[in-house]
Write a protein that binds this DNA or RNA. Structure first.
Lengths: 151, 151
DNA sequence: CCATACTGATTGACGTGTCAACTAGACTGA
DNA sequence: TCAGTCTAGTTGACACGTCAATCAGTATGG
């Protein structure tokens, strides 16, 4: 049984949706970058480390916590380490393992980034929508996510 | 006057939203890639060229048509040219100018990609939502876009 | 006429992501 | 015990994006 293709109206909704979200993400990322020197990825990693006991995590646990692939995380950690935001530390025990440790500079950067970040989210996202629309967004996210393969 | 920060519920909506859309985009892109060998960027460029008179456009016009920065387009065209999907051609007149011309291979690739692409959009996006939700998405996209700086 | 500014387009450097391959230690079962 | 496998993590190659610089050709004003 052949299944229908999207109508042109449905396709337009899709394209507008994707383009808008991409633009939105770009604007938020740009503000974060210029106001705090951190990328969204940096922020995500630093948030997870900040909340971790001893502000340290094993890479795999960190990857799970933020939902990243290990290789992506490894590359990102390399860049963050070069900038002194985090540090890698050996682990006595299972010597495959390692730790990612929050550095002072990372902690400082994170703390000075949180208000600008939250402000950007409010201004560009929350303030753009009515409370009803915000609820709708939550439902729509859930529906889309549940409809994705795997999860 | 100090303005409020997002509540944790609002923040959760934001994060779920961004993560879901990113995942969705990734899945659609992955399907397009494996089923047709084209990236979303390739598809966008090929679509614009296909619809252009003589299936050729000046880079600047192409950039405007698809809403890309010229430098991004230039890099992407370089990659597409290497694969034989498009070709660059000089322009007699204003010799700064140039043309991007759709190659046979590009045309073929595009035409064999359109059904898989549309199918993926239907399955992963349209089918996941009720008609009301789809309407809501359109309204929300518009609200978010209108709230962005510049536009 | 010519210095200057503008326009079209490309380039290089670099951050970011994915995929596949690799290293290396730890586990497991015949 | 030791081959096979699993787990943790890194690496290299490459696609994609942004930014700033560059280049060449066109237009403009004194």
């Amino acid at each position: 049984m052949p299944r229908r293709l999207p109508t042109s109206a449905e396709l337009r909704v899709w394209r507008d949706f994707i383009e808008t979200v991409e633009a939105l993400r770009g604007v938020v990322a740009g503000r974060l970058q210029t106001e705090t020197g951190l990328s969204p990825g940096d922020y995500t990693v630093l948030l997870a480390l900040t909340e971790a006991p001893q502000t340290r995590l094993r890479p795999s646990d960190l990857a799970v916590a933020i939902g990243w692939e290990r290789s992506r995380l490894s590359h990102h950690l390399g860049r963050m380490e070069r900038r002194g935001l985090i540090r890698r530390e050996g682990f006595s025990g299972d010597s495959r393992g390692a730790f990612v440790v929050l550095e002072e500079a990372g902690s400082t950067a994170f703390h000075s980034a949180t208000v600008p970040h939250l402000t950007a989210v409010r201004e560009l996202f929350v303030d753009a929508l009515t409370p009803d629309q915000l609820n709708a967004v939550a439902l729509i996210s859930g529906a889309l996510r549940d409809h994705l393969p795997d999860h």
